[in-house]
Simulated assay, not measured.
Amino acid sequence: MLTIHDMSVGYGEDRTVLRDVSVTVRPGRILALTGSSGAGKSTLLNAMAGLLRPRDGVVRVDGQPLRDRDHAVEHRIVLVPQDNGLAPILTAAENLQVALVADGVTPPEARRQTTAMLDLLGLAGQADQLVEELSGGQQQRTAVARGLALRGGVLLADEVTSELDAGNRQRVLDLLHDEARRGAAVVFATHDPEVAAACEAELHLVEGRAEVLRD
């Protein structure tokens, strides 16, 4: 379980982006993280992922204060960033295989899981294409495929449906719900009110402060 208590996060000495945020990310549920551009959604996800250290307050994972990104990885916190985080000079399949092997999966099993996951995301035909050759939507789906393949206990997804058509948006949302049913805690930052409404809970950010709309 991931919990945040009275957390404030900023950049530099003066710029505070989030103030006094408290939230519990529960296993088996999807928390929609909403708010206008610049409200702090990505900042909150980065703090949950151990990439940003809070100025005040604490992020806890399984009861322990989250130290850094390595600690987050140890506790199976997977981040699918808004910029997708893929290696552009590798193929879609290679991006998944490298991540899986680094996570301890054998190469043959990594290849099998990669094929299955890309097929789930409708990317079987793009497996051997370089990421830099893929469309924006295909890159987003590849990043989601990699995040899902890692089978984290916490999955943080940052605007991963922004470039998708309605069919692929629903496909990704269904797969995130499957992750929650598996027992993962899912946090999904989105601008899409229909996508947010399909999640079990919603945390709305306004000018750096959080308001629980549904819990």
Rank of each mutant, 00 (worst) to 15 (best):
residue 30 I to L: 15
residue 84 N to I: 01
residue 69 R to G: 00
residue 103 D to M: 06
residue 25 V to H: 11
residue 54 P to W: 04
residue 30 I to K: 06
residue 98 V to C: 08
residue 43 T to K: 00
residue 101 V to H: 06
residue 109 E to F: 01
residue 77 I to A: 02
residue 66 L to Q: 07
residue 44 L to F: 01
residue 52 L to G: 07
residue 103 D to K: 11
residue 91 T to C: 07
residue 32 A to S: 14
residue 25 V to K: 07
residue 73 V to A: 09
residue 109 E to G: 02
residue 85 G to K: 03
residue 81 P to Q: 03
residue 51 L to R: 09
residue 62 D to G: 13
residue 63 G to W: 05
residue 62 D to C: 03
residue 99 A to D: 13
residue 95 N to C: 02
residue 49 A to F: 04
residue 40 G to P: 10
residue 62 D to I: 01
residue 84 N to T: 12
residue 69 R to W: 00
residue 103 D to E: 14
residue 63 G to V: 03
residue 71 H to N: 10
residue 92 A to L: 01
residue 23 V to I: 14
residue 65 P to H: 02
residue 22 S to G: 14
residue 82 Q to K: 03
residue 36 S to G: 15
residue 89 I to D: 13
residue 21 V to P: 10
residue 66 L to G: 03
residue 23 V to P: 03
residue 99 A to Y: 04
residue 45 L to C: 05
residue 79 L to F: 04
residue 93 A to S: 14
residue 58 V to N: 00
residue 40 G to W: 10
residue 93 A to D: 12
residue 96 L to H: 02
residue 42 S to I: 03
residue 87 A to Q: 08
residue 87 A to D: 10
residue 86 L to H: 11
residue 94 E to D: 13
residue 84 N to G: 01
residue 55 R to T: 09
residue 31 L to F: 08
residue 97 Q to L: 07
residue 79 L to G: 00
residue 109 E to H: 05
residue 51 L to T: 10
residue 49 A to P: 04
residue 40 G to S: 12
residue 28 G to K: 10
residue 32 A to V: 13
residue 48 M to S: 08
residue 42 S to M: 05
residue 53 R to I: 10
residue 50 G to D: 14
residue 76 R to D: 12
residue 38 G to R: 09
residue 23 V to T: 12
residue 44 L to E: 00
residue 25 V to I: 15
residue 103 D to C: 05
residue 32 A to R: 09
residue 26 R to Q: 11
residue 52 L to S: 08
residue 79 L to R: 02
residue 77 I to K: 01
residue 55 R to H: 12
residue 99 A to S: 13
residue 21 V to E: 13
residue 72 A to Y: 02
residue 59 V to K: 01
residue 71 H to F: 10
residue 26 R to P: 00
residue 29 R to M: 10
residue 62 D to N: 13
residue 59 V to H: 02
residue 28 G to I: 11
residue 74 E to V: 04
residue 60 R to Y: 03
residue 103 D to G: 09
residue 32 A to L: 12
residue 66 L to Y: 02
residue 31 L to M: 14
residue 107 P to I: 15
residue 49 A to V: 05
residue 68 D to V: 06
residue 77 I to L: 06
residue 97 Q to W: 01
residue 45 L to G: 05
residue 53 R to S: 14
residue 47 A to H: 00
residue 91 T to R: 06
residue 24 T to R: 08
residue 50 G to P: 05
residue 42 S to T: 15
residue 70 D to N: 05
residue 25 V to F: 10
residue 81 P to V: 00
residue 47 A to Q: 07
residue 75 H to F: 01
residue 48 M to R: 05
residue 33 L to V: 10
residue 100 L to I: 12
